[in-house]
Computed example of a mutant assay.
Amino acid sequence: MSRIPPENSRNVATELAKERNRAAAERTLMAWIRTCLSLISFGFGIDRVVAAIDASQANERFNSLHLSRLLGLAFIALGTYAMLAAAIEHQQELTHIQKEQYFYKPRRSLGLTVAIGLIFIGAFAFAGIVINSFR
């Protein structure tokens, strides 16, 4: 004779599952914060180095300095975009977890979006370096 678990045990299991999902969402958000902070810091570092080089060479102008500054700004913009998107996605996930019925909802991958952004930044930097090497 099989026993049906009491109503309370099913609610506890469901609530614990929701808590695990919430904790996983928090860990994911923290990972995105670290990633975005790295992108922003890297972009800021590039910009500051370029500004220092530009200031030390007042009479000599290089087009590559402007390219490097744009590269730094692109990293900052990508990191800021990813941070905003991760915060919005996190809030949506928390709202989704709180619903009584949890159904899988496919969505665009934020990691893939950032990877595509990095591909474009890398291709832009590569093209700029190749063009400047032939001058």
Rank of each mutant, 00 (worst) to 15 (best):
I4A: 08
S9T: 07
S9E: 15
S9R: 02
R10N: 11
R10L: 14
N11Q: 15
V12A: 08
V12E: 14
E15T: 04
K18Q: 11
K18S: 11
E19P: 04
R20V: 13
R22E: 10
R27Y: 08
T28C: 13
L29E: 05
R34G: 12
L37N: 15
S38G: 13
L39W: 02
L39Y: 04
L39G: 12
I40G: 14
F42M: 14
F44H: 15
R48E: 06
V50C: 08
V50D: 02
A51Y: 00
A52S: 07
A52E: 00
D54P: 08
S56P: 03
E60N: 12
E60Q: 12
E60T: 04
F62I: 00
L70E: 12
L73T: 09
A77P: 04
Y81P: 11
A82M: 01
M83W: 05
A87E: 05
Q92G: 14
E93K: 10
L94R: 00
T95G: 14
I97T: 03
I97P: 07
K99D: 08
E100I: 04
Y102K: 08
F103D: 06
Y104G: 05
K105T: 14
G111M: 10
G111C: 07
F124Y: 03
A125E: 12
I129S: 06
I129M: 05
V130S: 01
F134N: 02
